[in-house]
Design a protein around this nucleic acid. Structure first.
Length: 312
DNA sequence: ATCCAGGACATAC
DNA sequence: GTATGTCATGGA
């Protein structure tokens, strides 16, 4: 089954920059593959496996997305299911314009400088919470390039293979039960996960056994969900926040990594000593429901200004 | 070769 | 509560 659908500007709240968004290294899922001007992903949507290729044909201010898709089976209602899938993954309903209105005008707010440079950058939400958890854990003390590669290798080695009608072959993300049975040394040797391999296996066991329940975490308030996540070996405050933000879409979460810590210390606290914990609390209280967006913008601004580019 | 990468953990104080 | 060393791997 093949088709094309167009997501009109009316359906997307505020500016949208597809390329910048997909290539921004958010820890919900590895970066999508790029083919001639578009990006594609393969996911289980309902009962079918769907490969969908997304292109931006409108500009950043009036975004229009063109989506070509192929699915393995003829499924009723696939178009609407795909549309709601895209709406979740790209967070079409986030009123980014309102975020800009709130923080782009006051020059005194460091956020204003980031918005003019990163306009159209948006949060994504991973379609598969387990995958998002693995990605967040794999990113600790690792580079974007390396954790992306390791997770993709993990998918290709251990994920269920699927063949699409367009002749292409792909792998779904592996199940928790599959990863739970792996040997640490093997997982490390084959994916380069390093010491994180044992954490990934232990967490996968917890997911498979129901000791980590994504639906329950989603229901819990932010603080309680974060505390529970941090009981899992290998999950500290930063990874927990990454998962809550990019995996569950809790936009109050503001992951504090080395870049955010540096930038906030410098721009908001005049260079004085501030703990990472306080930086997180500061961002949440200052930006509230926009804390996740503030973090995303500050992070990319900091890396462009002081560090390596992630968009080259 | 040494340092770093979207940190977590144990241990020390 | 904060400070320090350690943890695998690959890239610069």
């Amino acid at each position: 089954m093949r088709g094309r659908l167009e997501v009109s500007a009316e359906f997307i709240s505020g500016p949208f920059d597809l390329a910048q968004t997909i290539r921004s290294g958010q820890t919900a899922l590895p970066e999508w593959e790029q083919i001639d001007g578009g990006y594609f992903d393969v996911e289980e949507i309902g009962k079918s496996v769907v490969k969908y290729m997304v292109r931006q044909i409108g500009d950043v201010e009036r975004p229009v997305l063109s989506v070509d898709y192929v699915s393995d089976i003829e499924a009723e209602g696939l178009r609407s299911a795909l549309l709601s899938h895209l709406s979740k993954v790209f967070r079409f309903k986030d009123d980014v314009g309102a975020f800009y209105d709130l923080y782009s005008r006051a020059q005194s707010d460091p956020l204003s400088h980031t918005i003019s440079e990163l306009r159209g950058l948006r949060l994504m939400q991973g379609p598969n919470p387990y995958e998002s958890l693995i990605c967040s854990m794999a990113s600790q003390n690792n580079s974007v390039v390396l954790w992306n590669r390791s997770v993709k290798t993990m998918r290709e080695l251990y994920g269920q293979p699927v063949a699409l009608p367009d002749g292409s072959a792909h792998h779904l993300f592996p199940s928790p039960g599959t990863i739970a049975t792996l040997n640490e040394d093997e997982l490390d040797a084959k994916t380069g996960m390093g010491y994180r391999a044992k954490y990934l296996i232990a967490a996968s066991k917890m997911v498979a056994d129901g000791d980590i329940d994504f639906r329950e975490l989603d229901r819990l308030p932010y603080e309680a969900a974060k505390e529970r996540l941090m009981e899992v070996p290998g999950i500290g405050p930063k990874v927990a926040d990454c998962f809550l933000l990019y995996g569950l879409g809790k936009t109050h979460a503001a992951p504090v990594d080395v870049w955010i810590h540096r930038l906030v210390t410098k721009q908001y606290f005049g260079g004085g000593k501030v703990s990472k914990k306080r930086v997180g609390e500061f961002l949440r209280s200052r930006y509230g429901e926009w804390a996740g967006y503030a973090q995303l913008y500050l992070f990319h601004y900091a890396r462009r200004k002081w560090g390596k580019r992630v968009d080259t």
